[in-house]
Amino acid sequence: MSDLGAGFGYLMKGQRWAVQNGRWLGFGLLPGLITLVIYAGALIGLGHGADDFVAWATPFADAWSSPWQGLLRTGLTALVFVLGLFLAVITFTAVTLLLGQPFYDSLSEEVDRSEGGEVPESELPLWRELLVSARDSVRILLRVALYGIALFACGFIPVVGQTVVPAIGFCVSGYFLAQELTGVALQRRGFALKERLGLLRTRRLLVLGFGVPLTLSFLVPFVAVFLMPGAVAGATLLVRDLVDPATEPAPAH
């Protein structure tokens, strides 16, 4: 259980690093602001249309008497919105990292430099880095989508679907969020996606301790924008703990 606290500690260290290096914090706000505007519009649309979608998806409940019809559809409407937030948190990070790839790579390098020791640098051209990052993000998001579909289906289970399932959703969201953020530092170190996922699986509680609190904080409007630079910094510090420089693979081409 100590890994949970350690993961949260890396999150706090990353935020402290960003605050102490205000220039990097300032440069990191623009990609997040652009992404936030896009996602705010999407979530507002979801909020207006979720009840209509649930009514369409549950025609079998049309003949149910009160209060059972209302309880079912209200619970499912809330679940749809929670799952929308779950997907938004994951995709927000992926899109923001893609938009801010050059900056976040430089930020991650600066964190390594400030901590001392070797500073791994990607030998790939920028266009190739963007291509690899986009490809890996799509692969992770496909995994997230599969979990999202499974969780949505489980949402039809009375009581459990409206209590346990959202909690599991936040844990899954936090885990995949941490995968996205640590990808910046691990990609610079030459780790392919499969190797990155395998490395994170060795310290699941550490990853959850980092990702779940960040996921919950991202639910607060505008917070995600201001936390992104510190989240990348914290993920880099976490990677430094996980990776033994002597065993790092050669950069992938």
Rank of each mutant, 00 (worst) to 15 (best):
R201M: 08
S137W: 00
L33E: 04
P120Q: 07
A94T: 08
E109H: 07
P251E: 08
S122K: 06
V159R: 08
L186Q: 05
R113S: 04
V95K: 11
L142C: 08
G47R: 11
A153S: 10
G161L: 09
A192T: 03
Q179N: 14
V132S: 04
S106G: 12
A57M: 13
L219N: 03
L79H: 10
E121H: 15
M12S: 13
L193M: 09
E195V: 00
E115I: 01
T202D: 05
T182G: 09
T93S: 02
L199F: 06
G5L: 14
V184N: 03
G32D: 10
A88V: 06
A88Y: 05
G75P: 11
A192I: 10
E110I: 00
L99H: 04
T202R: 07
V37D: 07
G174D: 01
L130K: 13
A6H: 06
R196E: 12
P158R: 04
T182E: 04
L214C: 05
A50Y: 05
S137N: 12
L200C: 05
G116A: 11
Y147Q: 14
F27W: 05
V89M: 04
L216K: 03
E195Y: 00
A252E: 13
Y39M: 13
A40G: 14
V172M: 06
T163Y: 00
G234M: 07
E248R: 15
F191T: 06
L29M: 15
Y147C: 15
P213F: 07
V164H: 05
F8C: 09
P67N: 03
L29I: 13
W127I: 11
G190N: 09
F86C: 10
E129I: 08
L85F: 12
V111W: 02
A252H: 14
L238R: 12
W17D: 01
G211D: 12
P158F: 04
L193D: 01
F60Y: 15
T163P: 10
F191S: 12
G100V: 00
G9I: 07
L193W: 00
V138E: 11
T35C: 03
I38G: 14
F103T: 00
V225T: 01
A78S: 08
V232C: 08
P102Y: 00
R128V: 06
G84M: 06
Y175H: 05
E180C: 07
A55M: 14
A185Q: 05
R196P: 02
D52L: 13
V37Y: 12
V54L: 12
G209T: 01
E121N: 08
I34H: 05
Q179P: 02
V243W: 01
